[in-house]
Amino acid sequence: MVIPKINAADRGTRGQRIFRRFNVVFLTGVVILTLYPFVNIIARSFSQNGYIISGQVNLLPRGFNLTTYRIVLTDPLFWTNYGNTVLYTVVSTLVAMILTTCYAYVLAKKHLRGRTALILIAVFTMFFNGGLIPNYVLISSLGLKNTIWAVALPNAISVFNLLVMKTFFESLPPDLEEAAAIDGMNTYRILWRIVLPLSKAVMATMVLFYAVSFWNSWFTAFLYLNKLELFPVTVYLRNIIAGVSGGEMAGANGRDIGELLQVAANIQSVTVLLTILPIVAIYPFVQRYFVSGVMLGAVKG
């Protein structure tokens, strides 16, 4: 390992050196603080119930135990529902991206007539909505109940994401598009060939935002789907958690009291791990876009 040689000048003043040392200690502390809950959850998910209940699990699993994982993972319904989550997330994100991009691109054009009205319509929904029951009536009279569209359509445009995207498109130099138009491109080709390739950062950010929110969402699915085999995994796991903490399960499963206590003790940590795993796995690949994308609108030149 090569240790870079620092000459006397680079070491800076005494004050700077103290500051740097303080930084290292302080930031390490912050890292530990943020990582600890994650590590703790991982440790709990592999621990035995006795240790969890008495609060003895910290960084490492104690009394290594896989019962809860086995129970959840051997249920075929879990996999059906997990598959649903993947499908719903992919389709919903795709729909949401197409609709949000088109809407935002249009709004970014200052010469558009009625632009203010279009923006107001979107912003209006941030502050007011029809409420739960009218929404339910709407979805069921459209015949969307028990279909993927009940999940994908109602949340297809997030106004926050829309505004972020609009700001990004506005920041693109209009000259580029003018040049393309002079070269004979129509609006759609300009969007597809010029604007989108320049917007990878914001696109990746939006995909991430949408995908995570669809991945985690359970309420729309819970409300509009009435069949076991249609539920996403979030609804499935929520039901298990409620079952073990509600106590009704205990009467039902007299034979596996030990097993039941185990499940009750760490079902939440197992659940958290199983649901965030794919998102955590994707995150590093999107992150480099994400860093530049999320800064959008923060500084405007």
């Binding site: 539920f231 609804v235 079952g243």
Partner: peptide, 21 residues
């Protein structure tokens, strides 16, 4: 049957009764 997860049975029960469904 119309099936509702046990965890949130009361909530959805209330919604669909009120919605006339």
């Amino acid at each position: 049957l119309t099936l509702i997860p046990f965890a949130d049975y009361d909530q959805k029960k209330a919604v669909i009764i009120t919605a006339g469904d």
